[in-house]
């Protein structure tokens, strides 16, 4: 069941406006935790498109969210350059007070399926949100000192 579909030119203000539309629309029927997770993952993905795929410029982006067998899934399409890979690296030590690098980690910890591919000149990112039991440990952020 399709919950939301947005098309716009990616920049931080347009991302904010799209998220506000999504939050106040179909996602309002979801449980608060599920809605917050969906909005946060979508925000991080879309900001990543604006910042990296389009390098701070403007470019078209399409974002969709739907329910599949009770789980929230999403797809984001853009025509920018190939963005950073989400599924490896990017761990940090909180004690060093990093000022960035949180976004990719949040996406990773809040999703259980994440597929990036390049198709017909577009970046395609498909994701499925993690179940509630798997979300809140934050372990994937840590560099462990043994």
């Amino acid at each position: 069941m399709l919950l939301a579909h947005e098309k716009f030119l990616a920049d931080p203000l347009a991302v904010r406006a799209a998220l506000v539309r999504i939050e106040g629309g179909p996602l309002a029927v979801l449980a608060p935790a599920q809605r917050e997770t969906a909005l946060l993952v979508m925000a991080e993905v879309l900001n990543n498109v604006a910042e990296h795929a389009y390098g701070g410029g403007h470019g078209p982006v399409s974002a969709s969210l739907w329910l599949c067998h009770g789980q929230l899934c999403g797809r984001v399409l853009d025509k920018g350059v190939v963005p950073p890979v989400f599924t490896r690296g990017n761990r940090y030590d909180p004690a060093t007070l990093p000022e960035g690098g949180f976004g990719l980690g949040l996406i990773r910890v809040l999703t259980e399926r994440l597929v990036q591919r390049r198709r017909l000149g577009c970046n395609v990112l498909d994701f499925r949100l993690a179940g509630h039991n798997a979300q809140d440990t934050g372990d994937s952020f840590l560099i462990r000192h043994n």
Binding site: E36, P94, L106, L110, Q135, D136, G138, F141
Partner: peptide, 16 residues
């Protein structure tokens, strides 16, 4: 607020 606290917890920034 709970959503903000959650981001701090997920990123372990609540520890600093």
């Amino acid at each position: 607020t709970p959503p903000v606290e959650r981001v701090f917890r997920l990123t372990r920034m609540d520890s600093v």
